[in-house]
Design a protein around this nucleic acid. Structure first.
Lengths: 218, 218
DNA sequence: GGCCTATCGATGCAATTTTATCGATAAAAC
DNA sequence: GTTTTATCGATAAAATTGCATCGATAGGCC
């Protein structure tokens, strides 16, 4: 079966695929060759039908009674997500969050490669973090053009975030991954994705609140 | 109007409330007193009706033609999310990600207060990060009980994550905020919330892929 | 070789979530 | 004082998402 048109895939499915990928890679490391949707679903709190439907969009094909070949499935999901072609990215902001992102080695296997770091703090410029030199912000625009960078990662404070995004867009960036909690404006045709931690925290504290308030009900 | 029963609120609504909160606090800083759902919705790519419906669950009431009082609305949302009562939390993992989380000062205004850090690396134990001492992992269980800590934050690698969660649960933690990309097992009655960065990345790279592949369609 | 079981793949159904519509209300304009 | 306009609040419709059922297929077992 052919993979579906990209835009037709729901955001929910898109967010579940990386979860499957992680489980599959774990199985792969342990030498498992074939896996069924039922087995995958056991790791999560939703059913095997949903898993099968999600995997369908990647174009992966399984066999009855056996299931899917683990290695092939990993490959199909990665291909679908575009993670087998590694994209180069620029990171803006060399604070704690920026350092954490630089130190997170696994991005390579997620199709992301941070090639340079930018900051406007003169004390940071010229220093090296995880073997990558911190560059001045005014170097950003020419380098984006010369290196044909598509992805910009924003790891600055809420106050500075909009200005950084504007600079990235002006330089020709096509997609922005934003870690600042502020909602940002972005022109048509440029992609903005927010890695909002506060949203996740909201869900957590809310669940906790109801748990502490009334554990007897539900 | 009374706030709705907590469990009845959809996860989608719950995740949008922090976004509104951020916009509202920005307006508050700029001295704006009243705001309408239409104005709030302009900041996002969804309509004012959805905003109104979301705000409804918090119990906030607005007036026709005027809108909602900004200060009151902020208060109502925070109250609803449980963010006006700050919860103490333990952080496990003093690596780059742990440091970034410790350095993120704004958690206070989101109802979260990290009171201690734990790690099993002898070189890190005893050192101070952002004025908080790094403690040995075996100190975790007794301190959870003594200090009545409800929230545990997991900022370790995928390999160690399950063991850390098990230890937290055994110590009596009620809610876990997980930053490791691995899917974790957790017993009934304990809350698990994943701050999955890879999901966000999947959405980004997928959008980018379709943008680069065919910008003419859509 | 024939039967049984587990799993895929597809279609149809149910629930949830989002959007649209309508009347009521309160401020602003005339 | 009346009309106009913008917004809230509630209800109804549409779209999306998740789930269950059904036949088909392929391996295991007797």
């Amino acid at each position: 079966m052919e993979p579906k048109i990209l835009s037709a895939v729901s955001r929910s499915t898109l967010k579940r695929l990386p979860l499957y990928l992680h489980v599959l890679e774990d199985l792969h490391r342990r030498g498992v060759v074939y896996v069924s949707c039922t087995t995958i679903a056991r790791k999560f709190d939703f059913g095997p039908i949903l898993v099968r439907k999600d995997l369908e969009v990647t174009g992966a094909a399984g066999k009855a009674k056996i299931g899917f070949r683990v290695a092939g499935l990993i490959d199909d999901i990665k291909k679908f997500l575009g993670w087998h072609n590694v994209q180069d990215a620029f990171l803006v902001g060399a604070g704690n969050l920026g350092k954490a992102l630089l130190g997170y080695q696994d991005f390579d296997s997620y199709g992301l490669n941070i090639v340079a770091v930018f900051d406007n703090d003169p004390r940071k410029i010229g220093t090296r973090i995880f073997n990558k030199e911190v560059l001045a912000l005014d170097k950003l625009a020419p380098l984006v053009k010369r290196m044909h960078i598509n992805i910009g990662i924003v790891a600055v404070s809420s106050e500075g975030a909009q200005a950084v995004v504007d600079a990235l867009v002006a330089a020709g960036i096509r997609a922005v991954w934003n870690f600042a909690p502020a909602p940002l404006e972005i022109p048509e045709g440029v992609i903005l994705e927010n890695a909002r931690l506060t949203q996740s925290l909201a869900v957590l504290t809310n669940k906790l609140k109801s748990l502490l308030a009334g554990p007897e009900k539900e």
